[in-house]
Every structure is written in structure tokens, then in C-alpha cells.
Design a protein around this nucleic acid. Structure first.
Lengths: 149, 149
DNA sequence: AATAGTTAATATTTACAACTATCAACTTTC
DNA sequence: GAAAGTTGATAGTTGTAAATATTAACTATT
């Protein structure tokens, strides 16, 4: 048995996740329906949340409750993540990719037929994993621009 | 007398602007207080709106009413505009610039002491003028990244 | 096989952001 | 200089996004 604590490992059923976050179960489902989070699913289609999922959700809650950014606002912000630079997709990938065009939905809410992302799991993609907060998104934009330091 | 129609020319007092947009005067003042718009001011401190201001405001209204993005969401989105690439500020400018750090407020809501923006009027800056809609912001991010076509 | 927890879907509640109204002091217009 | 319009500020209203409750069918646990 692995005793290593893995933040990515799905461990919490929805009732526990809701309790830990202090919100209701339908709210968690809504965040998922809106594309803000992609929880792992069991073989019987039940949601299982990891420690990282909880961190992500706390970040989302802060955006909603403290920063007063609406869910659609968060989605729009996520849609601005320069995913093409993170996954290093090709020019032809970009040409057909719906996510590349969108400024309303995060890229991980799209199918990606005929792109480098086609058979990848967005849940394990850096775009989804690393850029869940606004600050890190701006940092990424800084990095991809021609900035020295 | 110039007969040329200049979209940048301030011409509408607040009552007319409000009527043209179908909103109340206090709402227009609120958008300004939130930093979404910078109307021209007369010598007696009265607001005067240009055709471009109205276009900008229609864009903001669409974001709020149709896209359901909250005002703070719009501010956060504006804060992600890579202004440093537009105004071509120096590394030392960036080091001290509050706007460069922020992911909550658009750059034009900050003072810019000791930067290239110090004595410039944000109202006439490309950052403010050209990137009032989400789509154009993503296009700018695309342009500054190492994308070919 | 019985109990507890989950699913998706719909209906309902609630908190508050967005907006409006009103005010006395000031500016503009004719 | 009188009438009309604007200023910032405060108080009040309202539409609806966000959150919750409830349901019958399903999955997991003992």
C-alpha cells in the first residue's frame, strides 16, 4: 500500500468534499456542469475528489465570494489561458481547434478532434492543472511574451 | 469648422449618453467609478462622451447582460491585457509598475509613477482603446506569443 | 438484501450585485 | 440671472445568479 500522500489521487466522495468545503452537493455538481472543475469518476460514475480538486475549488470559491467574479466571468478568464503555448500544438491544430477561438469557455470544456489534445485527458493537462487562479494566468501571459527577467 | 466625423471626439453630455444607451445616469457614473470607462471631462468637470465611449459602453453592457460577466469579472479580464507589450515599457518600468502586478484592476486605474506611462493619458492609450472586448484581448495574447500565422 | 450514499433533473429559495431615485451644491446655457 | 442640467453621495429597489431542496432511479457497503 502506497503511504505516499498524492495530491492528485481521487479520495473524497462528493458528500465529504462538500462538507470540507462548506457547500452543498448540488453546488459542487453545478461547478462541474459549468466546466470549472473535472472530478474523477468511479466505475459506477460517482464523483471522487482529490486534494488538488479541493484546492482548485477553494480558489474558485474565493473568486466568487471574495473577488465577486461571476461564474461566467471565471469561465471567460479561463478561456484566455494561452493553452496553445502550454501544449505546444501545431498551426494546423490551432486552425481547427474550437478552444483556440473561444473567449467564453475554458479549453477543457471542448472536444478537440484532430488536435494534439484529441486523446489526452484534460484533467491531467497543465492548462487545467496549473492555471486555476488569475494570478498564475497573468504570469503565464508574461512568460510567453518576449519578457526578459 | 471641422465637418469630419471623429469617433474620438467628446460630444455627448451624460443625459444624452444615458438615453442613447438606455440606462440611468448613476449607472454611467458607476461604470466610471469601477474603472470600466474614462469619459472626457469638461473644464467644469462635467462628463462628455464620444462615439467610441458609447461603443465601449455597449460592449460592457453586452458582457454584463448577455454574457453574464460581473463587473469585477470584467475588471479582472481587463487586468490580463499584456499592456507591457502594447506600450513597450522597459524592464525597470515593469519592476515598479502596480498595473503589471495586478490581476484585479485594469492598468488604466493605476497611477504609473516612474514609468513610460507616467505622463500619458490612458484615455488615449491603445491598451484602453483597442482591447475593450474579450475577443480582441485573446487575439492580442495570441499575437504576442510566438505564433506564426 | 437492507442501509446508506449517489445519480441527474426540476423546482424553490436567497443573497446581493446592478441599477435607480433623490438630494443640495455646482456648472452651463440663453 | 433664471432655468436646465450636472456633480458626488446616500438610500432604496429589483432582477437574477448562486445556492439549496427534493425527487425517483441507481451504486456502494455491510
Amino acid at each position: 500500500m502506497e503511504a505516499i500522500k498524492n495530491k492528485r489521487m481521487p479520495v473524497y466522495p462528493i458528500s465529504i468534499a462538500a462538507k470540507l468545503l462548506g457547500i452543498s452537493i448540488p453546488t459542487l455538481r453545478m461547478y462541474e456542469k459549468e466546466g470549472l472543475i473535472i472530478p474523477h469518476k468511479s466505475s459506477g460514475n460517482q464523483r471522487i475528489y482529490s486534494e488538488m480538486d479541493l484546492e482548485r475549488l477553494r480558489c474558485i470559491r474565493r473568486a466568487i465570494n471574495e473577488s465577486k467574479i461571476s461564474i461566467n466571468g471565471i469561465k471567460s478568464i479561463y478561456s484566455l489561458i494561452p493553452c496553445w503555448e502550454v501544449v505546444k500544438c501545431s498551426e494546423s491544430d490551432r486552425k481547427t481547434c474550437n478552444a483556440f477561438q473561444s473567449h467564453e469557455q475554458p479549453c477543457w470544456t471542448f472536444n478537440h478532434p484532430n488536435t494534439i489534445c484529441e486523446n489526452r485527458d484534460c484533467r491531467e493537462c497543465d492548462v487545467y492543472e496549473k492555471y486555476s487562479q488569475c494570478g498564475s494566468i497573468k504570469d503565464l501571459i508574461k512568460n510567453i511574451s518576449g519578457i526578459s527577467t
